[in-house]
Design a binder for these strands. Structure first.
Lengths: 150, 150
DNA sequence: TTGATTGGTTTTATAATGCAACTTAAAAGA
DNA sequence: TCTTTTAAGTTGCATTATAAAACCAATCAA
């Protein structure tokens, strides 16, 4: 590899997002962070990731504003990795990935973790709607490219 | 690398999804497919991806059921890559990535492509709701792990 | 039927990844 | 206080994935 082309300058927001969080590990770390993990060792154990890679990914996620390094809390913890607002706003991405995986990557009887509303225990729903609230699919939409890109 | 650990057996649907589409290129190819691209050369030109990598990714996406290889359409086209239903169902993932990128990865005046409803030209909205329709965020939810995982 | 285009494969170089061993500093224990 | 343990990395090396470019075969246009 001579160096991956950056998509920072791409006019497509999806492309820029993937440029920032589109590698193998970053979203898995974010998933674990949503799940309440905060410490280096917790991520390491949960993901089975090599220490140097985890170190690099955490550093990158912090530098990009998705995680922040909180110096300490109580009881001897040195530092914690916590989701920033930017990181928490990846919630819809995680939910969308989860829904797709549930539908296509599990057998009918297969056990899976599930995301539920805290109060009711009912599953969470994600849907795409037009401004008027009507649910829509890909065929109801189109991409407006920026002029210079055409 | 000695071979990335597969997450096929993970109980978390997000993890399995990332195992399938979590590499650098796959979702970019899917994005282009949503945008109407179907031919090898179109993807190559749009993404600036090396041919061997594109070839490998397309083969993988087909083998996983996200794209399908349609033999021909009209006028001597050899073959086309088209989204399957499984692939089209990645739409919410793409929209979620797009919304996040729009919010955090563009300057206020910066040009960007936008996803709009075809009929009205109005932007598309994505939201997460409880079963009763109330919009909710990450703090309103929790993960139910499978028993054996605990 | 010749030349160009499409859709790849092969080859080779380099960057990313993973593993294991090592380091450092803080926490816990005696 | 001094030692031991643990957490959180860093470093070095082997391996794999990726990229670029050259090559190749089947179409397609003329």
């Amino acid at each position: 590899m001579v160096g991956r082309r950056s998509l920072k300058g791409d006019y497509c927001p999806s492309a820029r997002s993937l440029d920032v969080i589109g590698d193998w590990w970053s979203l898995l770390i974010v998933r674990d962070a949503f799940d309440g993990l905060t410490r280096f060792g917790e991520f390491e154990k949960s993901l089975g990731i090599a220490k140097n890679i985890l170190s690099d990914r955490l550093r990158t996620l912090v530098s990009r504003g998705i995680l922040e390094l909180v110096p300490a809390r109580e009881g001897g913890i040195r530092q914690e990795y916590r989701l920033t607002e930017m990181g928490r706003d990846l919630f819809p991405v995680m939910v969308a990935l989860r829904q797709w995986g549930e539908r296509y990557l599990f057998g009918p009887q297969e056990q899976r973790s599930s995301l539920v509303e805290r109060e009711t225990g009912m599953p969470v729903r994600l849907d795409i709607r037009a401004q008027n609230g009507r649910p829509i699919g890909p065929d109801d939409t189109m991409i407006l490219k920026v002029p210079s890109q055409e």
